[in-house]
Amino acid sequence: MTEALTIPMEHGLLLASLLFLIGLLGVMVRRNIIVILMSLEIMLNACCMAFIFAGAHWGQTDGQIMFMLILSIAAAEVAVGLGLLLQVFRRFGSLDIDRASRMRG
């Protein structure tokens, strides 16, 4: 890679932070469980991105290894999440998280 193509780490982390905030806002604002799970994925992918930029900055593979780790964790998390989602739809007839909320708090 030539010198001109190098992206400074700060810019990368800024982009990752923006993505992270979009995901966080999505989780807080949206009420549909599928969209919430998608927003969670965006948050986790933003973390992956931050790790990759940091790893590239230090010239280490650690960042990419963390990326793979987070990728598999996110997959497992979403698999369980989708399983629960099926149950929620079957029982409450809706994917609205407020409809599924019966306890206080």
């Binding site: 992270f20 940091a54 998390e77 149950q87 599924a100 909320s101």
Partner: peptide, 28 residues
């Protein structure tokens, strides 16, 4: 229990993501 699992999953995943992002920043 279904509601509890869903709540725990969403909130726990958000907190994990926040923690992971913090780790990425410290690593950077």
């Amino acid at each position: 229990s279904l509601e509890a699992a869903l709540k725990y999953l969403i909130l726990s995943a958000v907190s994990s993501a926040i923690m992971l992002f913090g780790i990425a920043l410290v690593y950077a």
